[in-house]
Simulated assay, not measured.
Amino acid sequence: MLTVNLNAVAGIAILQPDGELSIADFKAASKIIDPYIESAGKLKGIIIHVQSFPGWDSFAALISHFKFIKEHHKQVSHIALVTDSAIGSFAENIASHFVSADIKRFAFNKLDAAEKWIITGEYQ
């Protein structure tokens, strides 16, 4: 399951996976994020907040994840990976070659720092 909390005032969506990701998770996230992007033009940031990366429940879910990234990366200014998972460093390095957003990794307990970075651009 993927919980999506949209702070419309700050323009930040916080995505919190709990268990393997599914196709339905990405469809649900789009239903929350897309209307905001349509009205505001852009999302300031997406925060992926997860202790350790749960993976996908199927190959189709992985493809759905890539499709979600392809459809949204140009409308997002910042992506914060707030995780203690080793995949966070890997994702930060690889994703920076494929998405237009600025990407930074933060420790799992640094959610506030990630939000501050998206809002102010200050990175500690």
Rank of each mutant, 00 (worst) to 15 (best):
M1A: 12
L2D: 10
T3I: 11
V4K: 02
N5L: 10
L6F: 15
L6E: 11
A8M: 11
A10Q: 03
I12S: 09
I12H: 09
I14Y: 03
I14N: 05
L15H: 07
L15P: 05
P17W: 03
D18M: 09
G19T: 02
G19S: 03
L21W: 04
A28W: 06
S30H: 12
S30W: 11
S30R: 06
S30A: 14
K31N: 15
I33Y: 03
I33S: 01
I33V: 14
D34L: 09
D34K: 01
P35V: 09
Y36D: 04
I37Y: 13
E38K: 06
S39T: 13
G41A: 05
L43A: 12
I46V: 15
I48V: 08
H49M: 08
Q51K: 09
Q51I: 07
P54M: 12
P54F: 15
D57M: 08
A61I: 04
L62N: 13
L62S: 10
L62A: 15
S64G: 08
H65D: 15
F66G: 11
F68A: 12
F68M: 07
F68Q: 05
F68T: 03
I69H: 08
I69E: 13
K70P: 03
H73D: 12
Q75I: 06
V76A: 05
S77M: 10
S77T: 03
T83L: 07
D84P: 02
D84V: 05
G88M: 08
F90T: 14
F90C: 13
E92C: 05
E92Q: 12
N93T: 06
N93P: 04
I94N: 04
A95G: 14
S96E: 04
S96N: 01
H97K: 06
F98Q: 07
A101H: 04
A101E: 07
D102Q: 10
K104E: 15
F106W: 02
A107I: 00
K110N: 08
D112G: 06
D112V: 10
A114L: 11
A114I: 11
E115S: 07
W117A: 00
I118R: 04
I118L: 14
I119G: 13
E122Y: 02
Y123W: 10
